[in-house]
Design a binder for these strands. Structure first.
Length: 1079
RNA sequence: GGACGAUUAGCUCAGUUGGUUAGAGCGCACGAUUCACAUUCGUGAGGUCACUGGUUCGAACCCAGUAUCGUCCACCA
């Protein structure tokens, strides 16, 4: 923890960052010598500070950013009060790989950071804290004070998680940081709420909801968990002479029964269906029930008694039945989980548990119980506090997922398959985008889970009876003096008085479900809602034709020409897709006529504004045009407005980014529309246009319904486009035994513990390799240590390369001009192969495969083979530099710190030359040498065979062994002789026959022998070894022969396969002959 | 009850449209220490690809069924 605080201090402190900048400007930070072991903690924080202060995370600082294709990811916002855990670390590692890869690949890569206010969770934490420390409840503090305390708490914690994100090396654009409860997001939430409310997609209704008595709040279906417990199932009658026996585990709820349901075809009850039975229940001071007997297909004849008591107010299922059969509802349990007066005077005020005991006692006393049995029962509990949920009726706000609304299209990336203006439901759009793969889910099987969830979706209860969060933007008139005052008023701005009677208003006390705001995350982080202003110049007027400049004087005659009318009509056509709120127009005749045409075609109201009039000669026009814009932007914030005005007027709105018109003339073309978007501060922005939809959403599969589905719902509704093209679902990180990491088990791995120990790069590798989408990942400290070793390996590869010659930047064409040995060609060819395969794997989001490929190349082929060979052949500086600098690029997305450190040491031209923004490896330009690959592979096999002989027969490790090779590949192998001799510690003699009395091994390349070493104690018998080998080869040949003599195989298998089998056979036969010769 | 996933070496997992004498890392065994790295190097042992059938010239891979484990959804009053 000391380490964490240290880091907080260093990055939190602006002075410190300035110091970095100063430090790096005035000091030569190049290492004179690389230390023997890589020490990550020596470089990581400094490097991150350098990247950040250089602005390298902001895409607009990338070279040629305007011409780059955008690539966007928004970080799934962690709770603002959370601390980094290994799940966050995994998420960040994956997303950072994507962002860094695409950034280096020439994309305008944007990764937006942010945190979530997590309304209910955060309030619970603070409430508990206050309860513990001060012994008071939220009701003691009051709403304003509690919210103040929570905000204070969030404020004190929010920076911690952000700094921890930095610790992971995440290249997030911190200049665009967002919070789900800040001002821009609040405006967005209110805007979308109002739109939904106005369209009837949001409604307020009295419905049975999930009530958590502990949290004193409603919960959505997705905030529930189930707990299994054993319960007594009582079989009983309501009264002695009651004709139907029912069964229940909660007899106390029967006090609220209003019906008895049976199966429609249950012959026992046919005569009772439709009737109402009146029966006293619960004792003399209990209640009198009026029970309708209804037939419902949901009732199973064979379960229990085949009949059930219906309690509409306190059961979701019963509530459904009550709606279907129009059965009345009686609430008998209150929000404090105590019985109400409606449960009868004997029960009122009792806890549910006590009431149950009392009812059961009464049933027993009356002899009404027929049977009692223990059953396993699943009960819903609150996912936050594990309290049992009580369903009860309550006036709540809902999102209607089955309400038809008029679909609005995005002008940017319209959804395919749903026409603009067509009537659809949220359920339909949610299903549609995934079904048509406009949003693809990886792994694919989660599409089924998603679709299933959508199909079973009920209206989404969005109000919560807590105090922290987005308060519902609805007000009620207190006095209700007029007839109109009764209706709730939804408003984006705070409402101060009733618009009908000017009386006082009360805001709805509830706040919104936290997922309502996080559902808007992909686009509200990009500045939505924008005010779109569409500037339209009037169509061609007679003054334009006649060349009259100061046309104001002829206004009454200066209308549109026929051409001008046509222009206005064309313009109207292009604006059909815009969901504009109003037309604001200059009152002059030509603009008036243009506006009227637009108004008619688009069905919009026109409001004329004097400030839009054409400029009079020598007038300072700026003041009135800008005053107009200020007012318009304020009044229509978040909406789209069409402004019909004059050329000069338009071109003078310099401060609003309108002067650079899309025309070659000094003035905009007639009736041309120029769209500008403005954020809440009135400045022109374009983030949404550039960066939405997001490229990828990367998150855990556990919040697919909660969050991913909600984002699809909100975004298709608000923007008419998908929030993201691809959803990548990662698994949960578990411990080495596969258990969920938890505080109580103490099995968690805290990233902040292991980062200082092994380095961020090692932690990232451990999270990236071995993980696959949708599957859980096992994590252990040993695994991280293994990747720490690899980080060090890479470091030492670089150390060796950089110490064996000058570092220099080398291009592919420079390499092609060199005299290359087979060894060089082998390496370069393998590298070209691996670079292409690695990039391909990343494009397909196969992180683990990509990482393994590159690790194997780096460790085995480069370090173990090429570097060793290079020591023999010498003079490899150029090839080595070339491979290293490209290898660093490939590794950078996975291991940003060690690669950048090496880059800064060896290749950076100046302090602002960062590997993280260097262009990706151009593997397409690399030359492949398939011949050399084969040839060097032969040398590798020979070296392996000699090493194996030495190990098998216990040849002293230091001894130089005379090796005899009988081979038909003498020419190829002779070229590699120095390498073979060094790497296998031997002297090679090529011969036509193998010398007698030596120990032999037979491989594809031929027979290899070494002299018998002295004092062979327990070494294995050569003959037995060879015989074993012979048998296995003979067996192999057997199977190949039978395959090749099978007519069906030869007849049906593809020629290439047969060819391969034949080659295998020939090789094996040769080998067998050589073995036989030795025996 | 429904759906989905997993089952390959002691452990963790690869295995791309069926063409494999089934791979990697860790662990294990044996050997190696001036000369980039012991956070290293070399060699090796270790597998009826859960089981049973089927399709196919050919199955770890496709199909059906079974078993075990896991996850999610829905729940029976």
């Amino acid at each position: 923890m000391v380490y964490t605080n240290d880091f907080v201090y260093r990055l939190d402190n602006i002075a410190q960052v300035r110091f970095f900048r100063y430090y790096y400007q005035t000091h030569d930070t190049r290492m004179t010598e690389m230390p023997k072991a890589y020490e990550p903690q020596q470089f990581e924080d400094d490097l991150y500070a350098r990247w950040e202060s250089a602005g390298a995370f902001t895409p607009e600082n990338l070279p040629d950013f305007q011409n780059r294709e955008p690539y966007t990811i928004v970080v799934p916002p962690p709770n603002a009060t959370a601390t980094l855990h290994v799940g966050h670390a995994s998420m960040l590692a994956i997303e950072d790989v994507l962002i860094r890869y695409h950034r280096m690949n020439g994309k305008r890569a944007l990764w937006i950071p942010g945190t979530d206010h997590a309304a209910l969770a955060t309030q619970n934490v603070v409430e508990k804290m206050i309860q513990k420390e001060e012994g008071v409840t939220r009701h003691d503090l009051g709403r304003a004070e509690l919210v103040r305390r929570i905000e204070e708490f969030v404020e004190s914690k929010r920076d911690r998680i952000k700094l921890q994100f930095r610790k992971m090396g995440a290249s997030l654009d911190w200049t665009r940081e967002a919070f789900t409860l800040d001002a821009p997001r609040s405006l967005a939430v209110r805007t979308i709420f109002k739109r939904m409310y106005d369209e009837g997609v949001i409604y307020r209704g009295d419905r049975v909801v999930n009530w958590c008595p502990r949290c004193a709040s409603t919960l959505s279906d997705d905030e529930l968990e189930t707990k299994t417990r054993t319960a007594s199932l009582y079989y009983f009658k309501y009264a002695k002479d009651f004709p139907i026996t029912i069964a229940s585990t909660q007899p106390e709820t029967k006090l609220g029964d209003t019906a008895v349901a049976v199966h429609p075809r249950d012959e026992r009850y046919q005569n009772l269906i439709g009737g109402v039975l009146q029966v006293p229940f619960g004792g003399s001071r209990g209640v009198v029930l009026h029970l309708r007997v209804v037939a419902d297909h949901g009732v199973e004849k064979d379960f229990g008694t085949g009949a059930l008591g219906v309690t509409p107010a306190h059961s979701m299922v019963d509530y459904g039945m009550a709606i279907a059969h129009q059965i009345p509802l009686v609430q008998i349990i209150g929000e404090d989980a105590r019985m109400l007066e409606t449960a009868g005077p004997d029960y009122a005020g009792m806890s549910v548990a006590d009431a149950r005991t009392k009812v059961v006692a009464w049933l027993r006393a009356e002899g009404l119980i027929e049977k009692e049995e223990e059953t396993e029962q699943n009960v819903p509990v609150c996912s936050r506090c594990a309290s049992e949920i009580i369903p009860l009726p309550k006036l709540q706000w809902f999102v209607n997922v089955n309400k038809k609304f008029s679909f609005k299209h995005s002008p940017r990336a319209p959804l395919a398959g749903i026409e603009a203006g067509s009537l659809v439901t949220l359920k339909e759009t949610m299903r549609h985008v995934v079904e048509t793969h406009q949003t693809a889910i990886i792994p694919e099987r989660f599409e089924k889970i998603y679709t299933h969830w959508v199909d079973n979706l009920r209206d989404w209860c969005i109000s919560r009876q807590i105090w922290y969060g987005h308060r519902i933007p609805v007000w009620y008139c207190v006095a209700q003096k007029t007839a109109e005052c009764g209706a709730p008023i939804c408003s984006i701005d705070d409402l101060l008085m009733c618009p009908h009677c000017n009386g006082a208003v009360d805001q709805d006390p509830d706040v919104l479900d936290t997922w309502f705001s996080s559902g808007t995350w992909t686009f509200t982080t990009l500045g939505w809602p924008y005010t779109r202003v569409i500037f339209v110049r009037h169509g061609e007027a007679w003054s334009n034709v006649n060349g009259v400049m100061d046309a104001e004087i002829f206004d009454a005659q200066n209308g549109l020409t026929p051409e001008g009318v046509a222009q206005a009509l064309v313009c109207a056509g292009t604006l059909v897709r815009e969901d504009a709120a109003i037309i604001l127009a200059s009152p002059v005749l030509r603009t008036k006529e243009t506006a009227e045409i637009l108004s008619e075609k688009l069905g919009l109201e026109i409001r004329f504004d004097e400030r839009l009039r054409e400029m009079a000669t020598s007038e300072n026009f700026n003041d009135r045009s800008e005053s107009f814009m200020r007012d318009a932007l304020e009044e229509f914030q978040g909406r789209t407005v069409i402004v019909v005005t004059h050329a000069a007027t338009i071109s003078l709105l310099k401060n609003y980014g309108v002067s650079s018109m899309e025309t070659t003339e000094a003035y905009p073309a007639h009736a041309c529309a120029v769209v500008r978007e403005f954020d809440a501060s009135g400045s022109q922005v374009g983030d949404l246009n550039v960066y939405h939809p997001n490229a990828v959403l990367e998150t855990g599969y556990d919040i697919l319904p909660n969050w991913v589905a909600r984002m699809i719902l909100m975004t298709t509704y608000a923007l008419g486009e998908v929030p993201f093209r691809t959803v990548y679902l990662h698994g949960l990180v578990r411990d080495a035994e596969g258990r969920k990491m938890s505080k109580s088990l103490g099995n968690g791995i805290d990233p902040l513990d292991v980062i200082p120990k092994y380095g961020t790069d090692a932690v990232r590798l451990a999270l990236l390799l071995g993980q696959s989408p949708g599957n859980d990942l096992r994590m252990s400290e040993e695994k991280i240590a293994g990747f720490r070793n690899f980080t060090n390996k890479l470091w030492n590869v670089a150390r060796f390369i950089l110490s064996s010659g000058d570092s220099c930047v080398v291009t592919a064409s420079e390499i092609d001009e060199l005299e290359l040995t087979t060894l060089d060609k082998w390496l370069l060819s393998r590298f070209a192969d691996v670079a292409a395969a690695f990039s391909g794997a990343l494009e397909r989001l196969e992180f683990s495969r990509a990482g393994e490929l590159l690790r194997d190349f780096t460790w085995n082929e480069l370090a173990d083979w090429y570097l060793e060979g290079a020591k023999v052949e010498g003079g490899k500086s150029v090839v080595l530099n070339y491979v290293l600098q490209n290898l660093l690029k490939l590794w950078h997305p996975f291991m940003p710190f060690v690669t950048e450190t090496i880059w800064q040491t060896a290749y950076a031209k100046d302090d602002n030359d960062f590997l993280m923004v260097a262009p990706w490896v151009d593997f397409g330009a690399m030359t492949l040498y398939p011949e050399a690959e084969h040839e060097f592979a032969r040398a590798q096999r020979v070296i392996g065979a000699i090493r194996a002989l030495r190990a098998d027969y216990k040849v002293a490790a230091g001894a130089i062994v005379p090796v005899t090779i009988v081979t038909k590949f003498k020419q190829t192998l002779a070229l590699q002789q120095p390498v073979i001799e060094k790497l296998a510690r031997c002297v090679v003699l090529f011969a036509d026959t193998a010398p007698d009395g030596q120990l032999a091994t037979v491989i594809e390349e031929g027979t290899i022998t070494i002299p018998k070493p002295e004092a062979v104690g327990d070494s294995p018998d050569e003959k037995i070894k060879l015989e074993a080998e012979r048998d296995s080869v003979a067996h192999y040949i057997e199977s190949l022969r039978s395959k090749l003599s099978n007519e069906e195989f030869v007849g049906r298998a593809p020629a290439s396969v047969i060819e391969k089998e034949r080659a295998k056979l020939a090789e094996a036969e040769e080998r067998l002959a050589a073995i036989a010769e030795r025996l």
